[in-house]
Amino acid sequence: MFKGEKNMARLRRLDFLLIALIYIAFLPVIGKLKLIDFMIFTIFVLSFNLLYGFMGRLSFGHMLYLGIGSYAAALSSVYLSTNPLIIILCAITAGLLVGVILGPVVSRTRGACFALINMAFNQVGYFLVVSACAGITGGEDGLAAQAAPLGFFNLQDSNIMFGFTLFCLIFVFFVMKKLIASPYGVLLKGIKENENRVRFLGYNTYFFKCLTFCISTMIAALAGALWMFNFSYVTPSFIDPGRNVEVVFAALIGGPGSLYGVLIGGGIYMAISNYLASYITRWEMFLGIILLILVFRFPKGLWGVLADKFGKAGKGQVVEK
């Protein structure tokens, strides 16, 4: 058992390789373009889950932060520069900005209030995109936008796009893993369990909640920019608050308490929505049933079930010897 844990620890250090291998292994089965979609979505779930799984704040308006990234990317490619790096930078900056503006407001709330206030902002964003600012955003029709090649870094080449998205996924995963393993990670879990108590340990929890919110919105915006690259256009569906259930489902399926769970959940959700949909017309109903089973029977998600089965070494957190 002892040795097994040591091996697990070593395995966890190489988990990013495993992610790459799995995605590459699925290339012939699922196809490049779909897998890019899978990866972008998983990045988005990672950003959502930083708030939900680790800090205990469920956002029902996370599509806003993804959408902001997409639209910022599209608009900057139209008005500013077609350099893909500049586009990404603009998208992340937009994500940061919206985090800095909304963070201080949403961080005052928790529970249902947090979920709904995010949703309300999402609705406002959707309205702005669809009608109030339709002159710039293209309204219902959306915008066509592209990044120009930058030397060999040509995101219109699906191989490069695949590689770059995989790199982004692994990078975000790596950063998250570091954050979760640090004292800050414990602070997040502390806030999740009992925020007031954390204040009596001398932490300004409000500040850290705002900060975490900003990290989350930035990563969501990165996913948004990647999404725009992948589709070469943006439409209001990128910012549609109704689609927010997708990310919630994905986190719940895999298990919001761990990063591995999120990776699994992102993949499985995308697989379900891509493939179940072509066999069963009202596939959302099955998703609903799955969700019910998850919430009532397996609140720790698929990864939670696996980890419980195969001992504590699999929990995606370092366990003391």
Partner: peptide, 24 residues
């Protein structure tokens, strides 16, 4: 204890450590 202790060590003020150092 990690939570309570790091707040009053240099770890808290050195942000790269607080956010990225392995807490173990």
């Amino acid at each position: 204890l990690v939570l309570s202790i790091t707040r009053f060590t240099p770890y808290y003020h050195n942000k790269s450590k607080f956010f990225f150092a392995d807490r173990t």
